[in-house]
Amino acid sequence: MEPKLRVENLSVWYQRQPALKHVTLSVEEGEVLALIGPSGCGKSTFLRTLNRLSEEQVGVRVTGSILLGDLDIHQPQVDVTQIRRRIGMVFQAPNPFPFSIFDNVAYGPRLQGAADPAALRKIVEQSLRQAALWDEVRGKLRRPALALSGGQQQRLCIARALAVNPEVLLMDEPTASLDPLSTAKIEELVGALRGQYTIVMVTHNLRQAARVSDRTAFFLDGTLVEVGPTRQIFTAPQDSRTEQYLTGRFES
């Protein structure tokens, strides 16, 4: 089967500073891929380059290619908005808009021209159901999103990302600001979305990577050290640097 995303020889610089060096990595359709590594290893840069978010910073230079299907997403003629519709993102801290719950989820579809109220209601309900939030907010859709708990806000952000029917979902430490119970709900949700969506997740929580991902990629100093089935990476990694990182004996 063709991979969903094919990253080839990707390098990223911030000004003169290399942040990613010659990374080649494929993401399979429907898999959950976890990106792990110490702070500053390039995993977040890698994630943010997958939907061209990294280029929002000044002085960023990207070489190599990222293929979504046949489309090289870094070609200048490519419409960034289209890319970000196909490759959605959920951030570290929940960032709902200061609108109602309904309007948060309807935001993307409306931008794309959906106007029929019945169709919008259907999309909103379906997205909230997929994000395992529907049962908690049904009947309260007109309430402000910011009145929800942190864990609910994060699931709302996932619902918002799902509402435009993306193919790939990028998650940047999605549970970093959540308590253990909300974290467990998000992890369960990732498990439920696996298969339907291709998910790439950065996490500092090794246990989380072990619990939710099919494959794990270990980054260090801007290079991809090792990628493999999560089961294998966490029990018998091939590279001694991965070994040192996982056993917590890493001295950087």
Binding site: T235, A236, T242
Partner: peptide, 9 residues
């Protein structure tokens, strides 16, 4: 301790 890799083995 939640050991991993060689520690786990």
């Amino acid at each position: 301790q939640q050991p991993l890799a060689s520690d786990l083995r």
